[in-house]
Amino acid sequence: MSNRKSIITYAQAINQALTQLMKRDKSVFIMGLGVDDPRRVFGSTANLSEEFGKKRVFEIPISENAITGVAIGASLCGMRPIMTHQRMDFMFYAFDQIMNHAAKWNYMSGGESPVNITIRTIVGRGWGQGAQHSQSLQSLFAHMPGLKVVMPATPYDAKGLLISSVMDGNPVIFIEHRSLYKRKGAVPERFYKIPLGKARLVRRGKDVTIVATSQMVSESIKAAGNLKKCGIDAEVIDLRTIKPLDKNKIFASIRKTGRLIVADTSWKNCGVSAEIAALAAEETFKYLKSPVARIALKDTPAPTSVELEKIFYPGWEDIVYAAKRMISGKKPKFSRRKKEVIDTEFKGPF
């Protein structure tokens, strides 16, 4: 295949990955609410049922738990099911099958029954989606041995990581972000994989390391641009996968910069940012010039009022503030007040 690239959206990149996976491998099938409805999961499953038939792309009963079990069972027979949730919150219904079964099945069967399923799921942010339509649950899944947790931040990664996830041979929680769906980027037209467990160095810098996940990667890039104006050179690392975690890349960067900010889309309390801060303390303590800063959600459910959302969701402003404070050692004169928590063109409904 050619090395041609096209500028496409995050949703289109996912669609391209799904199309190519289904073309190459008859064992791949897709099930989920919305995969064959008029909106096609925000466009990500467009044209699939037409091209591959309704036996391979189908709507499911609203039975998240059982359908996850169905995916597990099908994978035991060599199938590669891809299940889709339009919001991550719905996955709590399926925790029994994900946490008790998918994550442990191979282990408790002596290593001879791998579960090869990919669960696509979407985090919401802003537009008053509230406590049950916005949750970012990577920390819960990453807590569980046996699962892999993937969070693409760009169209290029969305395609390459999704292909890797489906071909991985393990249960993979593939976490997309609603705010990224319209973001555009250059994506090769060929079938390619991005290895799970390899973080991406987004921007080189020497003063402070910003480790970010999903939507917080673009906030971090924005923050780095702003910091540059004040003479602070930030290094930005996109984790890409929460599990396996590319610890070496994080440690190498800390050894260079001596400062760490972790920016995550989930809660601060017992979250991914806590894990990375703990690892930094365990493994790179002597290199740290200042305490680690964590930019993550406040310890509350997501509020719906736009003004409360601005307080609840962290953004590039919080990263800039943390970096300045870290380097100067005192409270910076910089307003963390946010204008908006979502792209201004986003007008809902969800």
Binding site: V70, L76, P81, D96
Partner: peptide, 28 residues
């Protein structure tokens, strides 16, 4: 797996949908 005794669960009802999954694969 040699005799297709596929596995068991310590959770009540836990394998029901998994068995439906092997049946779905057979159907496909």
């Amino acid at each position: 797996r040699q005799v297709n005794f596929m596995g068991t669960s310590a959770l009540v009802g836990g394998v029901m949908p998994i068995a439906a999954g092997t049946a779905l694969a057979s159907d496909m």
